[in-house]
Design a protein around this nucleic acid. Sequence first.
RNA 1: GCGGCUAUGGUGAAGUGGUUAUCACGCUAGUUUGUGGCACUGGAGUCAUGGGUUCAAUUCCCGUUAGCCGCCCCA
Length: 430
Amino acid sequence: MADKFLQKPRGTKDILPTEQPAWSFFQSTAEKVLCGLGFGKIDTPLFEDKRIFERGVGNTTDIIEKEIYLIESAVDDEDSKLALRPEGTAGAARAYIENGMGSWPQPVRLFYFGQMYRRERPQKGRFREHRQIGAEIIGDWSAQSDYLAIMSAVEILKKLGFSDLNIAINSIGCQECRPNYLKKLKQYYSDKLDKVCDDCRRRYDSNPLRLLDCKNEQCQNIKAKAPQILDKLCPECRQHFQDTLQYLDDFGIKFDLDNTLVRGLDYYTRTVFEISAGNDKARQTTLCGGGRYDNLVSILGGPTTPAVGWGMGADRVVELLKDNNVKMLPPRGVEVVILEIGDTAKKVCRQIFDNFEKEDINVFYIPSKDSLRSQLKMASKLNADFAVIVGQQEALNGSAIVRDLKSSTQEDLSVASAVEMIKEKYTKAS
RNA sequence: GCGGCUAUGGUGAAGUGGUUAUCACGCUAGUUUGUGGCACUGGAGUCAUGGGUUCAAUUCCCGUUAGCCGCCCCA
């Protein structure tokens, strides 16, 4: 801890054995849900050509402008630079194009799980290396896919035990109608710039949509009367959004229309949404965010291909899982420990070990010359359920002591019935 | 990137301008080798790091690093 090089890089974390059950619980339920909804898993590289992200995520977004990690190689012979992925969608879209998934049955439904990298100022729930699970539905214009995307994320969170979810949803239009709206919005703000906060003045030029997101009190009044994007959608976008909401209604998914919800990545069109847990009303740590990105594939050089998807912050979800004390099955640890006393027992112990292995019972056996006392100590530290004790006496008459370490009871059995008895306990339990 | 708060053994916490810096849990060795989780007795910590003030700093001041909070942004 004293030396800097012994310190993990800022914004990263070690996931220790005790935390793994929560992580595998999260990962396995998410994968189960997604596979069940027709998604196939894809792994893409942790790094891609920088241009994938520049074009996909957007050159002027914060993510690209100041948060991306570029890879510096010792040999500078490549005309293109590599970058660590800041999110998963651009890579998935690249893989869709490169692997000719356009010729697969459409839409193609994919999901991924893995690390993402953004050079941000760390805080609780915000890391420089974090893990996301994400899903993408590529090749379908219809609102059914928007519904499926949202539903799949909700389903995962429900299965994880989150009963109270906030789903915020909005539409930010398409290439056609959004520029018109932005013009109107800027027009509205243009003569009020002296009355709004510094941030809003900055946003006016850099990212006008963000004006709607301002939390500063002095801007609230002005914001409230600002033109609404939902009123300015083109007929197609409006219909699409209505259909999406209709599906959500039909299937009983509650949502909040939030006309101030805008998202930072350039590729989003039409539907955008965010999901947060009930106790976190301020949308402070969004668990899941996503939306439609009908232009991404074509921006990257593929054919015009509509798509919708989301990313879920695994670190944040797992953190909440731990807070909520969700019950999780720990992985099977050591179940049986074989303790031998004296060399004469060695042969029998080996035989018992083989028998347990054959029955797929987790058995721990290392020949030891330690006292029975210390061997039992070791067994309890391993958190084993049973100790099978074989000493000289037992070795001679072909028996073994089976000690139940949880209840501190034991009985003397023949080798065969000892194995049989423990095997039964486990088959009954499961 | 900007502003603020914090930093004591593996973990969680006390505490002090000056002899061997407390406590719990954990870890480890043992309590004379055929019975553990209890109990008892031992063991291990250069008070994050670099510098300054001082006769003297873990305690005061500054830089660095990291964590947390707010902004920004996002998962």
